[in-house]
């Protein structure tokens, strides 16, 4: 019994300590992001890595999601003889929800993992300590560019993903379900509001921030050796995916209406 309580106590303490450490890390990361010097070359590298090289993954994911969405909503809405809402359903689901969440999860797998692995390797091989000895703050040199790049690139990726997803819906709608192309297009735009798109982009920025933060945090606090880096990578992907889903609800609820 005592052992059981001790265990709970220890786990709770460890959990609170982790929260505290994460909060401190986040504060420091944000602070050092706005303070000079700015490492623009690092930023450029990250932007290319996150923004450009994630395009294929995000494009494929949203393309097929848009396609399957058109099929599924057709099946559903045909039961109410409401087939002509398919275009609207596709565009609203993609921009408000699927675009950001799917892109976020895919990028979390791709970028969150590579950030944690890279920074974790730098930690266990003393490269982070070496930065400190070479008049460079690791927070500014490593973390800040990644966070800025993540926050900037995800909305851009999601915007492109939205277009591709809607295009996927259009392909299925026109070539498989036999909608008239111009009717499908006008239906797509008819009920779409600017706020639907901005909601998706705000989400994307939040997700991008969280992905980079988790990748950097877990890499930075990586345990020793290859095992430590492996664990950091897993934790980065898992925690950023969970945070994406939680914050997705929170942001949606905040802007609900």
């Amino acid at each position: 019994m005592i052992a059981f309580l001790q265990n709970i106590g220890r786990t709770t303490l460890a959990f609170l300590a982790a929260i505290g450490r994460l909060a401190l890390f986040t504060g420091a990361a944000v602070r050092w992001t706005v303070m000079p010097p700015y490492y623009l070359r690092q930023l450029g590298r990250q932007i290319i890595d996150i923004g450009y090289f994630s395009l294929p993954v995000v494009g494929l994911t949203t393309l097929f999601s848009g396609m399957v969405l058109a099929l599924q909503s057709y099946t559903g809405f045909a039961r109410f003889s409401a087939e002509d809402t398919v275009a609207t359903v596709v565009v609203l689901s993609v921009t408000r929800e699927l675009g950001p969440v799917l892109a976020g999860l895919m990028v979390a797998g791709r970028i969150g993992a590579s950030m944690a692995a890279e920074i974790g390797t730098m930690r266990v091989t003393d490269q982070i300590d070496a930065l400190d000895t070479l008049s460079t703050r690791p927070m500014q040199y490593l973390v800040a560019p990644r966070i800025v790049a993540g926050t900037l690139c995800l909305p851009f990726l999601v915007l492109i993903g939205d277009l591709i997803g809607v295009f996927g819906g259009y392909l299925v709608g026109v070539y498989r379900l036999g909608f008239n192309p111009s009717v499908y297009l006008s239906r797509t735009l008819e009920y779409l509001q600017f706020s639907d798109v901005t909601l998706g982009l705000i989400k994307a920025a939040v997700f991008g921030f969280l992905i980079a933060l988790m990748g950097c945090y877990h890499g930075y606090h990586s345990g020793r050796g290859a095992e430590g880096v492996g664990r950091a990578t897993t934790n980065a992907v898992v925690s950023s995916s969970i945070l994406i889903l939680i914050s997705n609800y929170l942001v949606t609820a905040l802007f609900f209406g």
Binding site: T125, D126, Q127, D129, A130, L131, D132, T133, S135
Partner: peptide, 15 residues
């Protein structure tokens, strides 16, 4: 730290 130069046991070069 600026007044020191340090090498690490395993190099710690930026790869």
């Amino acid at each position: 730290r600026r007044r020191f130069g340090m090498t690490f046991q395993f190099g710690a070069l930026f790869d």
